[in-house]
Design a protein around this nucleic acid. Structure first.
Length: 838
RNA sequence: GCCCGGGUGGCGAAAUCGGUAGACGCAAGGGACUUAAAAUCCCUUGGCCGUAAGGCCGUGCCGGUUCGAGUCCGGCCCCGGGCACCA
């Protein structure tokens, strides 16, 4: 073999071998256990970044490991090709989004190949191709017919200068990023998928995902946000205002109601009240992002309208308040300032009455007499959220008593909820129901570079889905952008059509789908990417569910929830079996440079390609897997990369010295000497550890560290006897096998150098040898009162008495127990003895 | 603001189920080889005290549980991710 490690040459040879042998082509084979390993596909932004390299290295390591475990592995790759950046590039550089996208895909594909990932490229799938999105359109028309799709008005960010809808990302400090104009919220009709119909299932089935990270399950659970409560009607002149509350027990403490600025009652109040109209107009300022809305100052305005309390008939004022979200519940709340922090803050600010109806203690002070001159003595309460929360946390709803509430006095909170709900039901002004925080999924985007929504709008027939035989509705790719507006909106060739129902003139929908729609089902299409007669076919039954899914934790809620939703939709359409798409999930951490995320604006991007050029793909892969466990943020380090490269050179050198030592033969099978035995035991302990680290724990960093330790031992092992060389051969082979998923190219070459005709990619994972693992003695530590005082050796399998005696007779230990009474002896087998003395 | 994470040497980290804190690597310092440099190899390396044996302190902060806490519990501080039109 060559004396020096030349990554470029070694990597080309390995990649040529895999290509020539179609190594990663995955075919259905019912005689073998399948393993579908999927990494979240990239948006083709231009060039691969370190986050991609990390994500795809993790996936490739798992895939190659499972292959060595005998699984029939499928690892596909595709492109999440629709999206906003292509349009921005088009507007900026006058290049059609399609061309920009396809060129990026070509660049990034080459980069992925250069990294040696074992993808089945025959399944490659760009979502911007009609072969892909026609099935998305077809599926949408199925959902339409099932009533799972509807149109309603929804709020968007409106740029009044560019006359266009902005993404949240394009709203910076309340202004449009290109025009700089103050953004307004306005309502336009949009298509929605009824994900709320599946809320219960999406919540319940989280229990079927034991191999998902607990924090992702928690985030999804909270996002879906199921709460049990009561819908209460407050009658007013001309109707009933509905609110939802989880705390119906506090109904008698309601002192006003508040509606969102977009609520119909707000509009009605504004008709003859300029102050209300001005407030509503004022609330339209700014973007729609919840993070923005949640931190803004709580503001409100009283209306001239009132509602009746459903039980007492008392008149309560209606306020319009910016802290009430139209998107949650009914867009209106009953306000109970004494027992709700936000309501309290608001009531405090505007001098609204506070009526205590639960027996908790309010601090009596005189906070706002000046602001609220008419307030009675009993209203001088200071809300002390800390006291209130602590007190509440210490009690259950069964313990807290209702006060100041007429016939409900003396009931517990829980009893009061039931009693009040029953009384409301009798009056037809309320009923118990479940409310979800989850909202229906708005899929309309007023953009060009997306999948056209397959709907035709007809004056007489309304919204008509495009019939199957007219699919796909092809997005014209040869377009020029005039300004920022979607070219579809101004292209009569695209939108002028006939109504499929009545044949009259009609117009196509010019909105496109949210790109989350494409990424919600691509994992299934990878099983049948070439089928031009159906969305999916029987092959999904072999490959699905995905055994291992890997991607950024930033997708913990939206993408992963939408994909789970789509799986259930496809299941109910008879397209897939099973309830969940991803059996096991790994959420990988970000790649940081200087403690912050790599980004263009920070100027701290490190280009993977330059590194591959300098050190080779194996070094980059090794560093990525060694620097941190996959779920943690990874700090970029130039010298760390050099360290990884040094390790590969040391490994190469060790193999070179071993195989170059021609004057000595290899002969195993005889009784091993002490050093040989020690090395052999270390080897097999390493196999046990690395198998667990890669196969179960996914802590690739510690797996690599264990191999480094073993190699360090090897370099200290100077035994060149035939027997010693046999142990060395076995150890080097095991290291090469164990590292091959991580650094497959160098492993490919070294495996050959160690005398094998076979390719390492097709080899089986090494097995530990029980005999080699056996130990004659165990080392334990001895503590006195929990402090480390000595180390002892006991024979393997020593009993408790013998272990205790050995511990008590240790010289250093005796210094600490001399003259003191031993109160307790704690023995943890194979670990420690703790002697507790007075 | 709400939901979810994280905080351990000079740095990245390890400690898997409550049981030896700092494996492995980087950086730094010392040495070997070399005309020299690179490369490579060897040694030292949490802080403080001690010639040494060894000792004391130490896992963001405060408190608790335990024979024993980086790990569990309560409270706080700081950093990161997500918040529905970035993907």
């Amino acid at each position: 073999m060559e004396e020096h490690y030349e990554p470029a040459k070694v990597e080309r040879q390995a990649q040529d071998y895999w290509a020539a042998h179609d190594t990663f082509r995955a075919l259905e084979d019912t005689t073998k256990e399948k393993f579908y390993c999927l990494s979240m596909f990239p948006y083709p932004s231009g060039r691969l970044h370190m986050g991609h390299v990390r994500n795809y290295t993790i996936g490739d390591v798992i895939s190659r490991y499972q292959r060595m475990r005998g699984k029939n592995v499928m690892q596909p790759m595709g492109w999440d090709a629709f999206g906003l950046p292509a349009e921005n590039a088009a507007i900026k550089n006058n290049v059609p989004p399609a061309r920009w996208t396809y060129e990026n895909i070509d660049t990034m594909r080459t980069q992925l190949m250069r990294l040696g990932f074992g993808y089945d490229w025959a399944r490659e799938l760009p979502t911007c191709r009609p072969e892909y999105y026609r099935w998305e359109q077809w599926f949408f028309t199925r959902l339409f017919r099932k009533g799972l799709v509807y149109k309603k008005k929804a709020i968007v960010n409106w740029d009044p200068v560019d006359q266009t809808v902005l993404a949240n990302e394009q709203v910076i400090d309340g202004r449009g990023w290109r025009s700089g104009a103050a953004v307004e919220r306005c309502e336009i009709p949009q298509w929605f998928l009824k994900i709320t119909d599946y809320a219960e299932q999406l919540l319940r089935d989280l229990e079927r995902l034991p191999d998902w990270p607990a924090q992702v399950l928690a985030m999804q659970r909270n996002w879906i946000g199921k709460s049990e409560g009561v819908e209460i009607g407050f009658p007013y002149n001309g109707g009933v205002l509905k609110v939802f509350t989880t705390r119906a027990d506090t109904l008698m403490g309601a002192t006003y109601v508040a509606v969102a600025p977009e609520h119909p009652l707000a509009a009605r109040a504004a008709q003859d009240d300029e102050r209300v109209a001005a407030f509503i107009e004022d609330c339209r300022q700014g973007g729609l992002a919840e993070a923005e809305l949640a931190v803004q100052e709580k503001k409100g305005v009283p209306t001239k309208l009132t509602v009746q309390h459903p039980l007492t008939g008392e008149r309560l004022p209606i306020w319009v308040a910016n802290y009430v979200l139209m998107a949650y519940g009914e867009g209106a709340v009953m306000a109970v300032p004494a027992h709700d922090e936000r309501d309290f803050e608001f009531a405090h600010q505007y001098g609204l009455p506070i009526k205590q109806v639960l027996e908790h203690v309010l601090r009596r002070v005189k906070p706002w007499k000046e602001r609220s001159p008419g307030a009675g003595e009993d209203q001088y309460y200071e809300f002390d959220p800390a006291t209130w929360k602590d007190w509440y946390a210490s009690k259950s709803v069964d313990d807290v008593l209702v006060v100041n509430s007429g016939k409900y006095n003396g009931l517990s909170s829980a009893e009061a909820i039931d009693a009040i709900a029953a009384d409301l039901a009798a009056k037809r002004l309320g009923e118990k129901r479940t409310q979800f925080r989850l909202r229906d999924w708005g899929v309309s985007r007023q953009r060009y570079w997306g999948c056209p929504i397959p709907i035709i709008n007809c004056r007489t027939c309304g919204a008509v889905p495009v019939p199957d035989e007219q699919l796909p509705v092809v997005l014209p790719e040869d377009v020029t952008f005039k300004g920022v507006k979607s070219p579809l909106k101004t292209n009569p060739d695209f939108y002028r059509t006939e109504c499929p129902s009545c044949g009259g003139p009609a117009e196509r929908e010019t909105d496109t789908f949210d790109t989350f729609v494409e990424s919600s089902w691509y994992y299934a299409r990878f099983c049948s990417p070439d089928n031009n007669r159906a969305m999916l076919d029987a092959r999904v039954d072999y490959w699905l569910p995905v055994d291992q899914y890997i991607g950024g934790v930033e997708h913990a809620v939206l993408h992963l929830l939408y994909a789970r939703f789509f799986h259930k939709l496809m299941r109910d359409e008879g397209l897939v079996k099973g309830d969940e798409p991803f059996t096991r999930l790994l959420t990988q951490g970000m790649v940081l440079n200087g403690g912050i995320k790599m980004s263009k604006s920070k100027g701290n991007i490190v280009d993977p390609e330059a590194l591959i050029e300098r050190f080779g793909a194996d070094t980059v892969r090794l560093f990525m897997m060694f620097a941190a466990p996959p779920e943690q943020a990874l700090e970029w380090s130039e010298s760390g990369v050099e360290g990884a490269h040094r390790f590969l050179r040391r490994l190469w050198r060790q193999v070179y010295i071993h195989v170059d030592d021609n004057n000595q033969s290899i002969a195993g099978g005889q009784r091993l000497g002490e050093d040989q035995k020690r090395l052999s035991r270390k080897l097999h302990e390493t196999i046990v550890k690395v198998s667990d680290d890669i196969g179960r724990r996914y802590t690739f960093n510690t797996a690599i560290a264990a191999n480094m330790e073993l190699l360090n031992e090897l370099s200290r092992f100077g035994d060149r006897s035939p027997q010693g060389r046999a142990v060395m051969q076995e150890a080097l082979e095991a290291i090469v096998l164990m590292l091959s998923p991580i650094v497959p190219h160098i492993a490919h070459r070294l495996w050959r150098a160690l005398g094998h005709e076979t390719a390492v990619v097709n080899c089986a994972w090494p097995r530990p040898d029980e005999g080699a693992l056996a130990r004659e003695t165990t080392e334990l530590v001895v503590q006195v009162n929990g402090k480390l005082r000595g180390h002892i050796q006991v024979p393997a399998g020593a009993d408790r008495v013998q272990t205790e005696q050995t511990a008590l007779s240790n010289d250093n230990v005796r210094r600490y127990i001399e003259g003191r009474r031993v109160r307790k002896l704690v023995v943890v087998p194979n670990r420690l003895v703790n002697i507790v003395v007075e």
